[in-house]
Design a binder for these strands. Structure first.
Lengths: 121, 121
DNA sequence: AACAAGACGTAGAGTGTCTACGTCTCATTC
DNA sequence: GAATGAGACGTAGACACTCTACGTCTTGTT
């Protein structure tokens, strides 16, 4: 019975909010092309393991983003000498990233107004 | 043909992120009991119409929260002299609100780290 | 030869929000 | 006193996204 892979602090994990994954992926690719596995690792590392992108979310998201024209992919070889599909932002993808960032900021601000009503209420 | 109710700036509206509505409702009830319609209005007003809670989201959410024991309801009469179901937080609901606020803060922070990597990357 | 890890992927369940209906009641207005 | 609008409740079904749980293949290590 192989022990279920422990994945660091199982309790601290946060589920992603629906709709944020696309933005995170686009942002991660802003610094250059990466393959799917690498994108997941980058997100996990930058958040100290708090955000874990499961493959069942990641790959469908990448396909979806590519189909919409925000990403384009090319097959290559990874650092570990494995076949890997590298994704990079298209110009439209950069625009989309800006839109999603704006939306995210607005949303966080709006929710903040409900959660911490400065005055009124 | 009655014109579809315009609802102020149709384009500026933001869809809620899945999972945030419960928190918004709990927070809104922190200042006292309110009926469903009133909760929706309060959220809309505090966000300058940016967040609109549709009835098809609101009522199921209220039922869900009540079933989980975060809220309890009593029938009453509204300011407009209408029959209305008033919801208020239970003690468990207050605890839940705290948990959701913590989760929200963590999540926003984690996403912030991906979006604006201070150093590293 | 066996196994772990790197890398890709899909199927299906679960969840939550939205749109689109629908009902009833009170207050207003003609 | 009939019609209308707004206040208030609610449900059904579509849709989208994430997760869990599988599954495959390849490379490197022991």
């Amino acid at each position: 019975m192989s022990p279920r892979t422990p994945r660091t602090d199982p309790d601290r994990r946060l589920e992603l909010l629906q709709g944020t994954l696309d933005m995170l992926i686009l942002r991660t690719l802003l610094s250059g092309a990466r393959h799917g596995h690498g994108i997941g690792q980058a997100i996990r590392r930058r958040t100290d393991e708090l955000l874990q992108v499961e493959t069942g979310s990641l790959y469908p998201a990448l396909h979806r983003l590519e189909k919409r024209g925000w990403l384009k992919s090319t097959w290559g070889v990874s650092e570990a000498n494995q076949r890997a599909k590298y994704y990079e932002l298209t110009p439209a993808g950069r625009e989309q990233l800006v839109r999603e960032q704006e939306r995210w900021t607005e949303l966080v601000t709006a929710i903040g107004r409900v959660m911490n009503p400065a005055h009124g209420e």
